[in-house]
Amino acid sequence: MTDKLLVTFSPHDRDTMTTNKVMMLVVLALLPSILSSVYFYGHYAIKGYLLTVIFCVALEYGFDKISGRKTQIKDNSALLTGILLAMNMPAGAPWWIMLIGAFIAITVSKSAYGGLGQNPFNPALVARVFLLIAWPAEMTAWIKPQTVMNGLTFDAVSTATPLGAMKTDLLAKGHVVMENIAPMTDKLIGSVSGCMGGDSALLVLLGGAFLLQQRIITWHIPVSFIGTVFVLTGLYWLVYPDQTINPLMHIISGGVMLGAFFMATDYVTSPMVKRAQLIFGIGCGLITVVIRLFGSYPEGVAFAILIINAFVPILDNYMRPKSFGEEAK
């Protein structure tokens, strides 16, 4: 009986947290936002989430099978990518856009690099940006949020996002027309048009708080990201009050909240070292603001995160903290 004793390296006990559980906790943190998008977009939301998740998981499984690698779907990361991908699309996007999105996210930006942990760029964001450039019409066909009260099935009425409206007015009239922009309270609860997820700043914040409380993420990235957006847009707004919305509206509009808590904090594509995370967050905020204020796209969160993703290996390498007792060179 004892010739079958198991021999492994120490330690012999392990923490109960596992990678698949980490991913499920993030999904749990997204649940309030998922539910709110179902509330506002009815069957469009349900269809969107189902399709992206199925496409993502199936594509990951398929790639692993074809390349003869042990399948990685059990780590739940494809599930999470699927949900985030749906959240980064307009409700009501056609199914083939979702399939292409899933292909770009999973196969091109993740599996091809070797799967979880190997990809330099956030998969859901690569997909979003690719789609935005390749199919701008479909990717900006925002529909007006309804409520479930009108029934799960309703016909879409198209509309502009608050940031989009701002950009249009700026180009047409030279200044912001506040009447054309949804009030702040709508943005907090989510009854404004935009990407499916992260419409409600309040619910994203709730999910973010849950992640912080569960120690899935630390404050470094969200705080430095959101803080930078707030400070920079605030300064601009103080100098040119008619050229932009106030900084509070900036941080609760568009993808800042979802980006700061759920996209920029993606372990794989953000720095591991805390000091580097601060720089990373500030960089994301800075580029977001530059695109929002001076670029031709109304929103810059996805671009910002992707650009800074490229610097992660450098940040991690050069900001390695001194180890205990290491002598200064």
Binding site: Q72, K74, D75, S77, G115, L116, Y267, F324
Partner: peptide, 21 residues
């Protein structure tokens, strides 16, 4: 404990735990 291995997802937990930094 269940020792099923996954890829490193760069979560940084090991860094926070290392007493030798």
């Amino acid at each position: 404990p269940d020792l099923t291995q996954y890829n490193c997802m760069r979560c940084g937990r090991c860094i926070d735990a290392c007493p030798m930094e």
